[in-house]
């Protein structure tokens, strides 16, 4: 049994609220899949979201990015309602990268054109993105024939080419080998150094330590624990996090998930 989590607030030194969720919830029929999420993501932070399978991590990410409208509460971007213009300042990379049926370069050009970036600037950003993802030798290859690691690097490059202020990452290395994982983490590090705020969903505690500053732990659609990554991973206070980190299945007796 654990105490209810206090209102979580993920902060860093800059203290600029970039993204906020108030009483965020999502229900499908009678099932409350996400509930009572209060969360603040500050500019320049690196937030890791963890939790067991089915705890609602990916769904929360989609709600925060505005891909799915919440059934309760709301999301704010720079203290304004999250709209299309706000979402254009964000980007998301999915666990399984969606590659368009085009070449590597054409995938990047499509993303840049969609943001109204054309001509010399588009060419420059395209070249920069290809170089950052180390895909120079594959630039004219169809994106769908690339390896999983190459596709994910392209997905990262495509997301970052549009210069987002916040990058959502939904288990971007879940199906990658250690070398490809390292390459993706380097790109994330570089993006963060360039000022991009990072929100990363991962199951990998090692990756959470390497990539995260703050950790949000979810259980049954609720935040049950937050804090600095090392603190939560080394001394979890919630029963759900303790069980998950101990490799045990945790069933919270106080929540049937149907209510």
């Amino acid at each position: 049994m654990h105490d209810p989590a206090p209102m979580p607030e993920v902060q860093n030194d800059e203290e600029v609220p970039l993204l906020g969720a108030q009483r965020l919830g999502f229900s499908a029929g009678s099932q409350r899949l996400i509930r009572d999420i209060d969360l603040t993501i500050r500019a320049g932070s690196r937030t890791v979201i963890m939790g067991a399978n089915g705890s609602g991590k990916s769904l929360l990410l989609r709600l925060l990015h505005g891909l799915i409208p919440p059934t309760e509460g709301h999301v704010e971007w720079c203290e304004r309602p999250l709209d299309t213009a706000a979402r254009n300042e964000q980007a998301m990379v999915f666990q399984r990268p969606v590659m368009m049926r085009r070449s590597v370069a054409a995938n990047l050009r499509f993303a840049l054109s969609a943001r109204g970036i054309r001509g010399a600037e588009r060419a420059a950003r395209e070249a920069e993105a290809i170089a950052s993802a180390r895909l120079e030798h594959l630039v004219n290859r169809p994106a769908r024939v690339l390896s999983g690691g190459e596709q994910q690097r392209l997905a990262m490059a495509r997301a970052l080419a549009c210069a987002p202020r916040l990058l959502f990452l939904d288990e971007p290395t879940a199906s990658l080998d250690p070398a490809s994982t390292h390459a993706i983490e380097q790109i994330i590090d570089q993006a963060h150094d360039d000022g991009v705020t990072i929100v990363l969903v991962t199951h990998d505690a090692g990756q959470a330590r390497r990539m995260g500053q703050d950790l949000v732990f979810l259980d049954a659609g609720r935040i049950v624990e937050t804090g600095p990554v090392a603190q939560v991973l080394d001394a979890p206070s919630s029963a759900a996090a303790q069980a998950w980190l101990g490799g045990r299945l945790y069933l919270d007796p106080t929540h049937s998930s149907q209510t």
Binding site: R62, A91, M92, V98, A114, R115
Partner: peptide, 15 residues
């Protein structure tokens, strides 16, 4: 296959 990626990229209906 594309819907979620397009939504994330803010792709309009014509494009």
């Amino acid at each position: 296959e594309y819907a979620e990626q397009f939504a994330s990229m803010g792709i309009g209906p014509v494009r």
